[in-house]
């Protein structure tokens, strides 16, 4: 009886993994990574969007590798053939020198975006970082777009083989890679100099930061004020009772 149960369990596990698609077999047909240093925050906004090649393998679990310095993963979504965005519940885990996120995609299209802080933002400072593209899966066509921050000088990126274009008052550098193997190293090094610490769109369009539950230090002020008031009341009541 026990042996039969174990056998059924193993068989169903294998069948289930076959039904959802083994992640190791996935190939990305097309992926576009956009790096936007200091776009709307003092960090690098990364948008990673694309499409897995085999539509029939979905729904399926997939895994994306994130830089260790990730501060916030904002969105992890899939796109239906009709263009609907399905934003997924995700969980970020650590593994060695990286973080990664597992999500279950109902469709082969994906969109994730996150902020990460590879350098400190200070006035009159050189900012540099090297971004390693996530090549967990083989990629047939990979594009990497790098936005030059507003008010930056001596903007330099490596490797040097890129195209340039303008969009919405920003300059971009674009790389195109074909047939990237899984695990292949693809790094982009970015450096520039800026005198101020404000994000690109802060001055252009006024603040575009997403508000958190409390703006600035409002939450801390409320907490401290509440504790202080409680403390005062408690002390006063004790004195009254003693009296």
């Amino acid at each position: 009886m026990l042996a039969i149960s174990i056998f059924i369990f193993i068989a169903s596990t294998i069948a289930a993994s076959g039904a959802t698609g083994a992640t190791k077999d996935h190939v990305i047909g097309r992926m576009k990574v956009t790096l936007m240093p200091e776009y709307d925050a003092q960090s690098v906004l990364v948008i990673q969007e694309g499409k897995f090649a085999d539509r029939t393998a979905f729904p399926s679990d997939v895994k994306f590798t994130l830089p260790m310095e990730v501060t916030k993963l904002t969105d992890a979504c899939s796109l239906s053939p009709g263009g609907h965005h399905f934003c997924q519940i995700f969980e970020i885990k650590k593994a060695g020198k990286n973080k990664f996120v597992n999500i279950k995609l109902p469709f082969p299209d994906f969109f994730i975006d996150y902020q990460y802080a590879p350098f400190a933002v200070k006035k009159n400072s050189q900012r540099e970082f090297t971004y390693s593209v996530d090549t967990s899966y083989p990629i047939k066509t990979l594009e990497v777009h790098v936005q030059q921050p507003a008010r930056s000088e001596k903007f330099k990126i490596e490797p040097a083989s890129y195209e340039t274009y303008s969009k919405d008052d920003f300059e971009y550098r674009k790389y195109t890679f074909k047939n990237v193997k899984a695990g292949e190293a693809k790094s982009i090094s970015v450096s520039y100099f800026k005198t101020d610490t404000a994000p690109s769109v802060d001055l252009k369009f006024s603040s575009m930061k997403t508000p958190e539950v409390f703006e600035g230090s409002t939450g801390e002020i409320l907490l401290v004020a509440g504790l202080a008031a409680l403390g005062i009341i408690w002390i006063a009541r004790r004195r009254v009772k003693k009296a």
Binding site: K72, T74, I89, F90, E212, G219
Partner: peptide, 10 residues
């Protein structure tokens, strides 16, 4: 998912 824990705790 992914909402900063610090904000929730605060």
């Amino acid at each position: 998912g992914g909402y900063p824990l610090r904000e929730v705790v605060l």
